[in-house]
Design a protein around this nucleic acid. Structure first.
Lengths: 221, 221
DNA sequence: AGTTTCGTGATACGAACGTATCACGAACAT
DNA sequence: ATGTTCGTGATACGTTCGTATCACGAAACT
C-alpha cells in the first residue's frame, strides 16, 4: 500500500483498471487528516475549516476537497485516525512495560495513557473530547464507533481486575465490571479537568495511583 | 431588581439618573441567555448563532445585540447562568433529602446531581462540557471561573468524607482529598459517556452507588 | 500517437455569520 | 410642550465558510 511520489515500486502491487497513478492516496489522506488533528488541537475542532486544514498540511484547498469530498467525511476520517493512533499508543505503552507486568501495572498503564501528560496525550484528549461533544448533538457522529467499541477498554480492565482477584491481589467482593467502569470514567474526567486548566497532570496521576492502591489491597507477589 | 413591562412598581427601588425605562433588563438578559442554553443543547454550542438565540427566545436579532453587545459576552453570560442554575439545582436536591442526611446520602446526592438523569441534567452536562472543550482552546473562556471555583465541590466532598471518617463509616486510611477528586472525576466522566451514548443513566448511577458502597465500608449509624 | 484519466491550481458562488446602521415610537425629564 | 433617551425593528455590510466549476499538465493505456 506504499507508493511514493516519483519513483515507482509498482510491481509490489496488482493493479486493477482505474487506479491512482502517481501519489499514494492513503498516505496523502493520512497527512491531511493529521493536519486536521493538529489544527483542531490548536484552534478547537469547531473552529477548524477546510482552508485551515489545507494550510496546516501545506496543500491547496482543492486537494483537501479532492481526497475528502466533504467536510463531514474529513471529520469522520479524523475521528477514525485519532482512535487508531490512541490504540497504537496505548499498545506501545503496554509493550514497553518492563518484565512480566501484573494486572496492577497493566491497568495503571492503561489509565495513565488516557491522561494528557505529554503533547500527544493532550492532542488526543482535547480532540477526542471535542468529538464526543459534537456527537452529543450530531446524529451521524453519535452512531460512529467511538474508540473502536468504547467498552473494549472496559472489557480489558475488567478482565485484568478479575485476574487480580484470582491472584488474591484484589478482594473478592470487588465487582470487576463496575470497578472498571468507574476507573475509566475517572480517568476520562481527570483528563478533561486537566485540559480545562482546573488541575495539573501530577495531581491527576496521583489520583489514579491512589485509586489503584485502594483497589489492589491484597498480598503482592 | 425586578421591574416589569408596563406597570411600574418603582417605589421599591431608588433610581439613579440614567436607568432603564420600561423593561427589566436583567430579566430580558436571563430569558435570552436561557434561550442560548436551550439552543446550545439542541444544536450544539458551536453551531448556535445570534439568530438562533433570537429565534429561540422569540425576539429579534437586534434585541440580542442590544442586551449583549457581542457574541462573546453572550457566551460568557451563558456560562455564568449555567453554573448558577446548577448550583441552585444541587442545593435544592440537597435540601430535599429526607430527615437528617448523613455524609453518605449527601455525597451521593452531590454526585448524582451531576449526572444527566433528567432533561435539566442533560442540558447542563452537554452545554457545560461544550464550554469546557471551548475553554481548551480559548484563552478568554479558560480564565473564566468554571462552576464558580471548580474545587468548591471538591472541598465539600472532601469535608463530607472526613466527617464519614470521624463517624467511623469510612476507614481511616482513606485519603479524603484524593477520594473526593476521584469521585468527582468519575461522576463527570460517567456523565459524558452517557451523553455520548456509550452508557445509559442507570448503569452510571449504579457505578456511583457501587463506588460509594466501597468507600463507606464501616459501621453505619 | 492519441486519448483518457489523474492530480492539482485558481477562482467563483451562494449561504450564513457577527456586526453595524438607520429609523421610529413610546416614555421620561424639564 | 418639547427634547432627549430608551427599546425595538428592518435591513445592510463585509467576511468566512463549504462547495462547485473550469482549466491544464503529466501519466498511463491502447
Amino acid at each position: 500500500m506504499v507508493r511514493l511520489y516519483h519513483h515507482v515500486d509498482r510491481q509490489t502491487e496488482e493493479r486493477e483498471q482505474p487506479m491512482p497513478r502517481r501519489v499514494d492516496h492513503d498516505r496523502r489522506r493520512t497527512e491531511i487528516t493529521e493536519a486536521l488533528l493538529r489544527a483542531a488541537h490548536r484552534r478547537g475542532l469547531h473552529a477548524v475549516g477546510m482552508r485551515d486544514v489545507a494550510a496546516e498540511a501545506g496543500v491547496s484547498l482543492r486537494l483537501v476537497q479532492y481526497y475528502f469530498d466533504t467536510k463531514e467525511k474529513l471529520l469522520l476520517h479524523g475521528l477514525r485516525l485519532l482512535t487508531e493512533r490512541f490504540t497504537a499508543r496505548t499498545a506501545a505503552r503496554l509493550a514497553a512495560l518492563p518484565g512480566e507486568p501484573g494486572p496492577r501495572e497493566t491497568v495503571e498503564a492503561l489509565l495513565l495513557a488516557a491522561l494528557p501528560s505529554d503533547e500527544e496525550g493532550r492532542v488526543f484528549h482535547h480532540v477526542y473530547t471535542a468529538y464526543a461533544v459534537l456527537a452529543m448533538a450530531d446524529e451521524t457522529l453519535a452512531e460512529q464507533p467511538f474508540l473502536g467499541d468504547p467498552d473494549a477498554a472496559e472489557e480489558a480492565v475488567a478482565r485484568l481486575l478479575a485476574r487480580g482477584q484470582a491472584d488474591g491481589r484484589i478482594p473478592a467482593e470487588v465487582d470487576a465490571r463496575l470497578e472498571a467502569v468507574s476507573l475509566l470514567a475517572m480517568s476520562a474526567g481527570l483528563g478533561t479537568s486537566v485540559l480545562a486548566g482546573q488541575r495539573d497532570v501530577a495531581s491527576a496521576e496521583a489520583a489514579v495511583r491512589y485509586r489503584l492502591d485502594r483497589v489492589f489491597t491484597g498480598r503482592t507477589g
